[in-house]
């Protein structure tokens, strides 16, 4: 481990001395382009969120906010009366932002923690342990990734109903908390790549599998696990269909469903664009903060995850 840490900076240092400046400039240009494509739509989102909704259409292509207002953000936080909202062309529907936020945090955290941990355990069994039928069982698990989600939504809904867990956090969380096929697949691929030497050395010392898993595999895979956890969290945070089915009542409604009130409310109607865009920004904020907080860690730990 310590040798890897010492070795890692070397190639970067040698690369920096490379003479290919034109190539580097080209690479940077591509990178800037990719960043522009990623970011520009968000500027449009911000511009729209700061606009008065019923002034948007007549300023459809103005790059600045149409009749600047913070009304849309107030709407998202539920600080605007229906009358004020309607006067700005926004949705007059009631939302309880902080409650939805709390529900979203609980839902995403529990499912992420559970799914990543249990999937890591399973991935360990599928990659580092040798047992009869291992690959067959793994193929079956992998096969679940192939099942169209639409296909399982209704039976799962009925199952939750029969467990009498509709409109409860437990019912919301259950299908995700034990595993996701992607997480198992993802971690298994990383575990496969892990050096056997460290592990085998530990085996000789008489270490048990649980200890190997917790003390060697998990720390060594910190980077992929952190990456996976972040990606899973984002996925869960944006989950819409299942919470819509199972948690329709206010006390368990998550943010993505709650903020749906800014979409078109009547047939052939237009959405409350300002409200929807403000909601998009605000609902992305927690994930953004999470990334800002742990992103650096992910980068650093990747350097140290020293595989061989």
């Amino acid at each position: 481990m310590s040798t890897t840490a010492r070795r890692a900076p070397l190639p970067a240092a040698t690369r920096r001395r490379r003479p290919f400046n034109a190539r580097r400039a080209g690479a940077w240009a591509l990178l800037v382009l990719a960043i522009a494509v990623s970011v520009l739509p968000f500027l449009w989102v911000l511009r729209t969120a700061l606009s008065t909704n019923n002034a948007l259409a007549s300023n459809a292509t103005s790059l600045l906010p149409a009749e600047f207002t913070l009304g849309a953000f107030k709407r998202v936080f539920g600080l605007q009366s229906p009358a004020e909202a309607v006067a700005e062309g926004g949705s007059g529907a009631a939302i309880d932002f902080w409650l939805y936020l709390r529900n979203s945090i609980i839902f995403s955290s529990i499912t992420t923690a559970g799914a990543v941990f249990f999937s890591a355990m399973a991935a360990y069994a599928f990659s580092r342990l040798r047992w009869k039928g291992r690959n067959a069982v793994f193929s079956l698990f992998l096969g679940t990734m192939l099942v169209p989600p639409i296909f399982t939504a209704l039976p799962n809904f009925l199952l939750i109903k029969n467990l009498d867990l509709l409109n409860t956090m437990l019912g919301l969380v259950l299908p995700y908390v034990f595993m996701t096929p992607f997480a198992i697949f993802f971690l298994r691929q990383f575990f496969l790549n892990m050096s056997r030497e460290v592990e085998e050395a530990a085996m000789l010392d008489g270490a048990k599998h649980l200890r190997i898993f917790f003390q060697i595999v998990l720390p060594n895979a910190a980077a992929p696990i952190a990456t996976l956890a972040l990606l899973t969290f984002i996925g869960q945070w944006n989950e819409y269909f299942w919470p819509l089915l199972v948690a329709s009542q206010d006390d368990v409604r998550v943010l993505q469903v709650g903020l749906g009130v800014f979409k078109s409310q009547s047939p052939q109607g237009a959405p409350d664009w300002s409200g929807l865009m403000a909601a998009t920004l605000i609902s992305a904020l927690p994930v953004l903060i999470l990334f800002a907080a742990f992103g650096k860690k992910i980068v650093n730990s990747i350097g140290f995850s020293g595989i061989k």
Binding site: G114, F118, S119, A122, V147, N156, L159, L174, M179, P181
Partner: peptide, 14 residues
């Protein structure tokens, strides 16, 4: 643990 999720929320509905 993964097996529980696998059986009840993937295999059964399938």
């Amino acid at each position: 643990p993964a097996m529980i999720g696998f059986v009840f929320f993937y295999v059964l509905p399938t």
